[in-house]
């Protein structure tokens, strides 16, 4: 049994930290953009325009039934076919946004559908337009109801960002690959990096919990978030 030497990882702490920061950056940007994309997609799927409903439906099914790895490569090669030469980070953010957008759309749609018809009728008879009903009545309530499911999805996104290492984005997993090939200490490197992801998941969940307390004034069902 060879001796384990974790110091090689801790010696390169600066690199690891940068990798973690990029992972966090990718996660936050994709989360914010993906949530917006997903919400619009969910609204489109419930709308009256037939072609829009079908388009949103196809987008969601296509993403949810194909691996993220393949999606990232498609975005990467697709964008370069169009003549655009974008950084690995930009490509990663795009692919992650498209990916989490589809999952968010399904979750938000379930949230929208859960709003009681009576409330919608009341809002309608008070004279509110469809857009106003979504903004004032549906959105906030739906978000509150699906918040645990939605934030779980965002934590999964953070873990999935590891796949961006395959198109040379220098996030945490890519840093791990570099360190282990440099130090010939793969076991220690991946154990440490694995632990860091566990830590990041935990921290992210806490951040979302606090965010939830801030957005939703009424403190309901706190244990669902933890």
């Amino acid at each position: 049994m060879t001796e384990l030497d974790f110091s090689v990882v801790f010696d390169r702490w600066g690199m690891v930290l940068n990798g973690m920061l990029l992972t966090i950056e990718l996660t936050l940007v994709a989360t914010a953009c993906g949530f917006v994309v997903g919400t619009f997609c969910a609204i489109g799927k419930r709308g009256r325009t037939g072609w829009l409903r079908r388009l949103c439906g196809m987008y969601v099914e296509a993403i949810r039934n194909t691996p993220l790895l393949v999606q990232i490569f498609l975005v990467y090669f697709g964008l370069s076919n169009l003549g655009l030469s974008l950084s690995a980070i930009t490509v990663s953010m795009t692919a992650l946004t498209i990916n989490v957008g589809a999952y968010s759309a399904e979750i938000m749609r379930a949230g929208f559908d859960s709003i009681e018809k009576g409330q919608l009728e009341a809002a309608e008879t008070l004279g509110l337009t469809r857009r106003q009903v979504y903004w004032h009545v549906i959105l906030k309530q739906a978000l509150e109801r699906v918040y645990p499911a939605l934030t779980s999805q965002f934590v999964l996104l953070m873990l999935s960002s590891s796949i961006c290492s395959q198109i040379s984005a220098e996030e945490l997993t890519a840093v791990a690959n570099f360190i282990q090939s440099d130090t010939y200490r793969p076991f220690e490197t991946y154990i440490v990096v694995g632990m860091l992801y566990v830590l990041l998941s935990f921290l992210l969940r806490i951040v979302f919990w606090i965010l939830g307390l801030a957005i939703f004034r009424r403190r309901r069902n706190l244990q669902a978030f933890i």
Partner: peptide, 27 residues
């Protein structure tokens, strides 16, 4: 026309005041 329903259909995420103010401000 104003209509009141059997199941009141108040908006649970808004205060009483906000429930009543919503339509006058938005519409």
């Amino acid at each position: 026309i104003g209509i009141v329903f059997q199941s009141y259909n108040l908006f649970p995420h808004l205060t009483i005041e906000e429930n009543v103010m919503l339509a006058p401000t938005a519409v």
